[in-house]
Amino acid sequence: MLRFLLVVFFCLGVIKSGNAQEITWLSFEQLDDSLKVKPKPVIISFYTDWCLYCKKMDKEVYSKAAVIKEINLHYYAVKFDAETKTPIHFDGKTFHKKSQFHELALLLGAREKQFTPPVILILDSNFVIKSRWFEYLSSDKLLEILKTN
């Protein structure tokens, strides 16, 4: 009986893990390695702890099954705290926090030399920016963007 229960719990775990419940977020370092092994498009979500629309996207957009599925199947995803103090090693360079915001956030997500979260970037498999969004995106709008890029 114990073996039977163990097999059932193992199978349930395998089935559940096959149906992702959340986005597989990578660090920039993991992204660097992944792009070298298997290039594919990238979505980067820049956020801050004080950004209310960032929290709303976490709760109402990045938690939707259709968004999770689309991102996990077709994109590498990076979620990055724009105010982190941690140095980031990416593409053979080291990036640091230089002001209120991290150098990577300013380099990739600034508009007219200003950074205001949330910022969502879509990049191709060569890490070339295809589109940038400087606003809250609903799950429907984000899905439309993901499917057309």
Rank of each mutant, 00 (worst) to 15 (best):
K113G: 05
K93A: 05
T94A: 03
T84H: 04
L108F: 06
S99P: 13
F90T: 00
G109W: 07
K97L: 01
K93Q: 09
H102R: 06
H89N: 10
A105I: 08
A110L: 10
Q114L: 14
S99D: 10
F90H: 03
E103H: 07
K113F: 14
E112I: 05
K93S: 03
I88Y: 02
L108A: 05
F95V: 02
T94M: 04
Q114M: 12
Q114H: 13
E112R: 11
F95Y: 15
S99E: 13
Q114K: 15
L107V: 11
A105S: 10
Q100L: 02
L106V: 11
F115W: 12
D91K: 14
K93G: 01
L104C: 09
F115V: 09
K113P: 10
K93C: 01
S99T: 14
G109M: 07
K85H: 12
E112G: 05
F90N: 03
A110F: 12
T86H: 10
P87L: 00
L104R: 08
T86L: 11
F101W: 08
D91F: 06
K97C: 02
I88Q: 02
K85S: 13
K97A: 02
L107S: 15
L106T: 12
Q114G: 08
T84K: 02
H102M: 02
E103T: 04
H89Q: 09
H89S: 13
Q100C: 04
S99I: 07
T84P: 01
T86E: 14
A105G: 09
T84S: 10
L107N: 14
A105W: 02
K98C: 06
T86K: 15
K98S: 09
H102I: 04
F90V: 01
L106M: 15
S99A: 14
L104V: 11
G109R: 06
F101K: 01
T94S: 08
D91V: 08
L108S: 02
Q100I: 00
T84W: 07
Q114F: 13
I88H: 00
A105K: 06
A110Q: 14
F90Q: 02
T94H: 07
E103G: 05
P87R: 06
F101R: 00
K93W: 01
K97H: 04
K97F: 01
G109K: 07
E103C: 02
F101S: 00
K93R: 07
G109L: 02
G92A: 05
A110G: 11
T94Y: 07
K113C: 07
H102P: 12
D91A: 13
L104F: 11
